[in-house]
Each structure stands twice: as structure tokens, then as C-alpha cells.
């Protein structure tokens, strides 16, 4: 049985690539005329690779799940070893709040800086910010698509996908040309959960895709962590429910690293802004949480010009992030 033939056959018939598909007569006819090598050649001409499940490089964690894919199509420069490296899935709502975006980015940044591969689904919202955070830290990140490997979905993330491919891998169980369909996203989520040693849910409504990922991770016996949110926010209902069920509380990248048994790297040697500088004052003004530029200026006793300059300095150093005029550390 050719795994590649199964993957292509299932995609062409718009069905899930389950092993039982190989028992049909249509499959036998298809497999008889399918030329593996020619297909792989064509893939590589378009810049894609194929990693079969039987390949020793296939990530063992993914191979161990209940319903592993026949293999993965890969796009990107990185070695297939990144798929087997210690990794964490960071997932959450597509329409996340500024809080979720900030937390996802910050967590991914901290995890990537500690050498952990950040896995997510390239979706809008939390997924996208998780990839960005990992890229910020110069780390490795893996995006799992719910459509053909040649597609960028959502289109708005085409540039992000290219950046992920340059610094890590974009993977999919679907061959080129497969259009995104609603049922493929839960299937994609099992690969996200399957690739990662632990899954962190950042913001999730009740009955959301991120909770599906968390459930899949639980079924496979992986760790599930959740970021607590405001109890009044609908975007936190899913994560807070996970916490009540016993998910590990995430308050920072250290909590995730502890679950993985990875020692956090000692603080960066540059150690933040010089004491006494406007940047240090601005950073201190952010100690109590998010603040607007005007609030920071008032608390740090800086004029608006110096505040703006100090905050940009901190942004470039990756110490604070800004969204909609609100700054967070």
C-alpha cells in the first residue's frame, strides 16, 4: 500500500484518508495507475515534500495518535527533525480579543526563545499571533493547514505563511489543490494536537475549534494547559471550563516549560532597559497591566514625545507589545 496514493486518492474523492479506503475497488484501480515517484518529483518541482508515515523521520508523537494521517506534505526550508523536536501547540479563538493576541504572542515568544517549536493552525486570531510570536523570537514554528499544501488559508495570512515556511515548516495532510472545507479543520486539529507534547488554549468560546484540539490532545494523553481569562468574557468561557476540569493554569511561558520539563533559559543578557532611562520608567509604569500611552506618560512623569520614543524602544526590544494604542508587557 502506498501512503502517498492513499493521501491523493482520498483528497480526490473528498473523503478522510482512513485505512479502510484502501479496501475499495476504486482504490485498487487508482493505486495501480498511480506513479509515486512521478508525483513526488512534481511535488519537489513546486517546492513541496512528502513525508510518509512509514518514513523513520515521521514524528513519532503524531504516528502514535489514534488516527494518524498517511503522511504529511511539507512546505518550507526546515529539516523534518523540527517535527520531532519538543513542541507545544498554541491554539485559540479566531476572533480573539487584544488580550488573547497579546498572550498568544508573548507565550509563543517565550517558548520559542527556550527552543520549543510552536505548533498552530495558521488561522486568524490566536493561531496567527502564536506563529508571529515564535517568529519574533527567531524561533521555529510549524503551521498545520486544513487545506492543500499549496494553499494559503486564510488568504490574509499568505505573508505570514511565507514567513513560517522560511523559519520552520508549513504542513498538511492534503495534497496540492485541496480546497478548505469545514470538516477538514477538526481533522487538521488532530494533527496540531498530535504533533505537540502539550496544547495551550489561549482564548476559546464554548464549543470552539480550540476546544476540539484540547479534547483530541486529552484523548491522546497529552498535557492540556489553559490561560485563565475574565469570567465575564464569552471568549474565556472555554478556557475557564478547561481549567475547572483540571487543565494546568498558564501564567507565563515558564508554566508551559515546567510541564515539558525544560528549564527556562536564564534571562536575556541585555537585561532590559538601563535603570533610570525613560524606557525603564515607562516599563515600570506598565507593571500593573495594560495602559495607554497617556497613562504611561503620567505615571512615568514623561512628556508625550519621550514616552512615544521609549515605548518604541521597548517594542523593538520585544519587551512590550502594543495594540490599538494599548501597551502591555
Amino acid at each position: 500500500m502506498s501512503e502517498l496514493a492513499l493521501a491523493v486518492f482520498a483528497a480526490a474523492r473528498d473523503v478522510h484518508a482512513a485505512p479502510r479506503e484502501t479496501r475499495s475497488r476504486q482504490y485498487e484501480q487508482f493505486a495501480a495507475s498511480f506513479d509515486d515517484r512521478a508525483y513526488v518529483d512534481e511535488l519537489s518541482q513546486r517546492g513541496f515534500r512528502w513525508l510518509a508515515r512509514s518514513d523513520p523521520a515521521f514524528p513519532p508523537l503524531l504516528g502514535a495518535i489514534h488516527d494518524p494521517p498517511p503522511g504529511l506534505f511539507l512546505r518550507g526550508a526546515a529539516d523534518t527533525r523540527v517535527l520531532a523536536a519538543p513542541s507545544v501547540a498554541v491554539v485559540g479563538a479566531r476572533s480573539c480579543a487584544d488580550y488573547g493576541a497579546h498572550v498568544a504572542r508573548g507565550l509563543a515568544r517565550g517558548l520559542a526563545a527556550a527552543g520549543v517549536v510552536v505548533v498552530s493552525g495558521l488561522a486568524r486570531g490566536v493561531d496567527g499571533w502564536a506563529h508571529r510570536g515564535a517568529l519574533d523570537a527567531g524561533g521555529t514554528t510549524v503551521a498545520v493547514l486544513g487545506c492543500g499544501i499549496d494553499r494559503d488559508y486564510p488568504r490574509a495570512h499568505a505573508r505570514l505563511a511565507a514567513e513560517v515556511a522560511a523559519a520552520g515548516l508549513v504542513v498538511s495532510e492534503y495534497p496540492p489543490g485541496v480546497a478548505p472545507a469545514p470538516w477538514r479543520f477538526p481533522a487538521r486539529n488532530r494533527i496540531v494536537a498530535g504533533l505537540a507534547r502539550a496544547t495551550v488554549v489561549v482564548e476559546a468560546r464554548e464549543r470552539s475549534g480550540a476546544l476540539i484540539t484540547a479534547d483530541l490532545a486529552l484523548e491522546e494523553g497529552r498535557d492540556v494547559l489553559a490561560v485563565p481569562g475574565e469570567i465575564t468574557s464569552a471568549l474565556s468561557r472555554g478556557t475557564n471550563a478547561l481549567l475547572r476540569l483540571g487543565a494546568t493554569v498558564v501564567t507565563g511561558p515558564e508554566d508551559v516549560l515546567e510541564v515539558l520539563g525544560i528549564a527556562p533559559r536564564p534571562n536575556e543578557d541585555n537585561g532590559g532597559p538601563a535603570p533610570g532611562s525613560p524606557a525603564a520608567a515607562a516599563l515600570a509604569a506598565l507593571a500593573d497591566g495594560a495602559a495607554t500611552a497617556d497613562e504611561i506618560a503620567r505615571n512615568a512623569r514623561l512628556d508625550p514625545a519621550a514616552t512615544a520614543a521609549a515605548l518604541v524602544e521597548l517594542e523593538l526590544a520585544g519587551v512590550v507589545t502594543s495594540q490599538g494604542g494599548v501597551y502591555r508587557r
Binding site: A308, V312, L316
Partner: peptide, 14 residues
């Protein structure tokens, strides 16, 4: 510091 301040008034990421 002038460049840094100018950067603060760029398009917000969104």
C-alpha cells in the same frame, strides 16, 4: 529619539 517617536505613529499592527 526622533526616529523612535516617529515609529510610534506608524500604522497600528492591526
Amino acid at each position: 529619539e526622533h526616529v523612535a517617536e516617529a515609529l510610534a505613529y506608524r500604522s497600528p499592527t492591526e
